[in-house]
Computed example of a mutant assay.
Amino acid sequence: MKLDCIMLIDDDEATNFVHKMVISQIDCAKEVVEAHNGQEAIDYLKERAGKQPQPELIFLDINMPVMDGWEFLEEYEKLDEDQKGGIVVVMLTTSLNPHDREMATKMGVIHDFMNKPLTKGMLAELIDRHFGNSAQ
């Protein structure tokens, strides 16, 4: 069994391309959705409320135009439960700032904090940790 949907929230097309390739190699999702900033992601989640597939895993960048990762999280926490879906949120960033990692770990909505790029090993470990055998 695979996840129904993984969402990438990142404004960098090359990064999204690489991450989609890694997800495809692991073959762990039926669908991958891209949002190029936090606002696009919030709009998508609101629009998809109660519909399938809702993202089960979100990879969130910090630095993006329009609405960055932190602003996305503020808006995400205001969503109704049916708009959030059963979502595991992973901050995936190039930030080496210890403050960013510390902030992310204090937020209950963030399940993991990882540095880009996503690798097959990182993804497999993440899927196993948060979804167990249900994603295999």
Score class of each variant (00 low, 15 high):
Ile42Lys: 10
Asp100Lys: 02
Met21His: 12
Phe17Val: 02
Val22His: 09
Asp82Thr: 04
Glu47Ile: 00
Val32Pro: 03
Glu125Ala: 14
Glu40Asn: 05
Ala124Arg: 09
Ala14Thr: 03
Pro53Trp: 04
Lys2Trp: 02
Gln52Met: 08
Leu60Arg: 02
Asp27Ile: 13
Phe113Ser: 02
Tyr76Thr: 01
Met21Lys: 13
His99Phe: 03
Asn37Val: 07
Leu8Val: 06
Ile110His: 04
Met103Pro: 00
Leu8Gln: 12
Lys78Asp: 11
Glu47Ser: 14
Lys78Ser: 09
Leu118Arg: 10
Gly69Ile: 06
His99Met: 02
Glu74Gln: 13
Val90His: 10
Val90Ala: 14
Asp100Ala: 06
Phe131Lys: 04
Asn63Cys: 07
Arg48Ile: 09
Met67Arg: 08
Ser24Asp: 15
Met21Leu: 12
Gln25Gly: 04
Arg101Ala: 09
Met21Arg: 12
Gly50Arg: 07
Val33Gln: 02
Ser95Lys: 05
Phe17Glu: 07
Leu57His: 08
Gly38Thr: 06
Ile87Asp: 01
Gln54Phe: 13
Val88Asn: 04
His130Phe: 15
His19Met: 10
Glu74Trp: 00
Glu47Leu: 05
His130Ile: 00
Phe17Thr: 06
His36Cys: 09
Ala135Cys: 09
Gly85Phe: 06
Ala49Phe: 05
Asp68His: 05
Pro98Met: 00
Arg129Asn: 03
Asp27Ser: 15
Pro55Trp: 03
Gly86Gln: 15
Glu13Cys: 01
Val109Tyr: 07
Asp61Ile: 13
Asp12Arg: 06
Glu34Asp: 11
Trp70Gly: 03
Thr93Asp: 10
Glu125Lys: 10
Gln25Asp: 15
Ala29Gly: 08
Arg48Thr: 11
Glu71Val: 05
Phe17Ile: 01
Ala41Glu: 07
Trp70Ala: 05
Leu8Ser: 05
Thr93Ile: 11
Ser95Leu: 13
Leu118Tyr: 11
Gln52Glu: 08
Lys20Gln: 13
Gln52Lys: 12
Leu126Ala: 03
Ala124Pro: 00
Glu40Lys: 08
Val66Gly: 05
Phe113Ala: 01
Met107Arg: 14
Gly38Met: 07
His19Asp: 10
Glu81Ala: 12
Leu8Ala: 09
Asp80Pro: 00
Glu81Lys: 09
Gln136Glu: 11
Ser134Asp: 06
Ala14Val: 10
Pro117Ser: 12
Ala135Gln: 09
Leu3Lys: 03
Phe59Ile: 08
Asp27Ala: 15
Asp112Trp: 06
Met64Ala: 07
Leu92Thr: 09
Gln136Ala: 14
Lys120Gln: 14
Ala35Cys: 12
Asp68Phe: 04
Lys84Arg: 13
Phe113Tyr: 15
Asp10Asn: 13
Leu45Ile: 07
Met1Pro: 01
Thr94His: 04
Leu45Gly: 04
Leu3Asp: 02
Gly85Trp: 07
Pro117Ile: 06
Thr94Asn: 14
Asn63Ile: 10
Cys28Lys: 01
Ile42Gln: 11
Glu13His: 07
Gln52Asn: 04
Val32Asp: 03
